[in-house]
Amino acid sequence: MGQQKSGMTQNNTSQPGRLRPEELVPSRYAVRVGEIDVLVVSDGVLPLPTAMLGHNADPTARAAWLKDMFLPPDAFDWALNVVVVRSGGQTILIDAGLGFDPNLNLPRAGQLAKRLEAAGIDLGFVTDVVLTHMHMDHVGGLLVDGVKERLRPDLRIHVAAAEVKFWEAPDFSRVSMPPGFPDALRAAAKRFTEEYRSHLRLFDEEQAVAPGVVATRTGGHTPGHSVVRVASGNDRLMFAGDAVFAVGFEHPDWYNGFEHDPEEAARVRVRLLRELAETGGLLVATHLPFPSVGHVAVEGDDFRWVPVFWDY
């Protein structure tokens, strides 16, 4: 698919005169999907243990994959991406990043608000939010002090009904998370539901959010985990949330530590990767390296990630 510049940002290059000292790399990337503008925005990075990539995998195999990828053996920085879509007069924010949790010491994430501002996107113009799920690195940006006051009073937040139900009494029996994360996830989901209940627009299996923008529940990662498909003309893009991780192309059967139903998550992952390989559509996912825009190739049971050539 040929990429064109989006009207949401002037270009994909940095502007040195406006950079903050810590902004050493671009933090947004624009894609055109037919007539729909898509902007991938980095919320920062999360340093997490490498065992989280495949806690059911043989440690030797996991170490070999990390070495082949030139990644450190113990922990590395996971990207944290969100997406802004403009279609049919609506501005849609897909996921909201981490926000701020002082107990987890994750200072390099939670950058969404300032990066939206740097991209010229006013929170007050966001008409819809779609949540792939309610883990705190997807809802936390809406819980930052001062954010809710900047949002529209008629903001619609689309999330699967099964997701809201799950967080009433979440089951962490099958995850493999670092200490502190389960409590933080419970607290963030509870607070989010309390603060935004009147804005929630629940759906069972599928919800058309705007022309060419459809959210579909997949389950797996969480019971209400959803993906968002963007389609216009012959162009396609899927925001897969946490259904796909970097290791998932070569090892889709490896369980991620944040998956509440690992077996179902693996089945969902394979199904989505096969769909993307068949359609040739673009894939963007939360924790693929920024800007996380690429294609999926398949040969037999083997998948391969093919990043796009950046369009300047």
Rank of each mutant, 00 (worst) to 15 (best):
E263A: 15
E263S: 13
D261S: 08
F70N: 15
G280V: 12
L46Q: 09
A277D: 09
I157F: 02
G241F: 01
R86W: 04
T193A: 13
D253F: 10
W65I: 05
I157S: 06
R115K: 02
N12M: 04
I92M: 01
P26A: 09
S226H: 11
A57T: 09
P47H: 13
A57H: 09
D43I: 06
A79F: 06
P72E: 04
A266I: 03
D74P: 00
T13N: 11
V31F: 04
E250D: 15
F309I: 15
A169T: 13
G89N: 10
A266Y: 01
A64D: 14
F245K: 01
P262T: 08
E23G: 09
G212Y: 05
H251W: 08
A240L: 10
M238T: 15
D128M: 00
D242G: 10
F192Q: 09
A266G: 06
P170W: 07
R20L: 12
V296Q: 01
H251M: 05
R236E: 11
A61F: 10
T60I: 14
E205F: 09
A231Y: 10
G97I: 07
A297S: 13
N256P: 01
G2S: 15
G146D: 10
A265V: 02
F100D: 13
V41R: 00
V130Q: 00
D95A: 02
G110F: 07
A240E: 05
M52C: 04
G248N: 15
R152K: 09
L200V: 05
D128F: 00
A119R: 03
Y29L: 05
D154Q: 10
R269M: 04
E168A: 14
V83K: 02
L116D: 03
G281H: 06
L98A: 11
R86N: 07
N12H: 04
L39C: 03
F181D: 10
G212L: 00
V270L: 07
H295M: 13
L202D: 02
A231R: 15
V247E: 10
G300A: 11
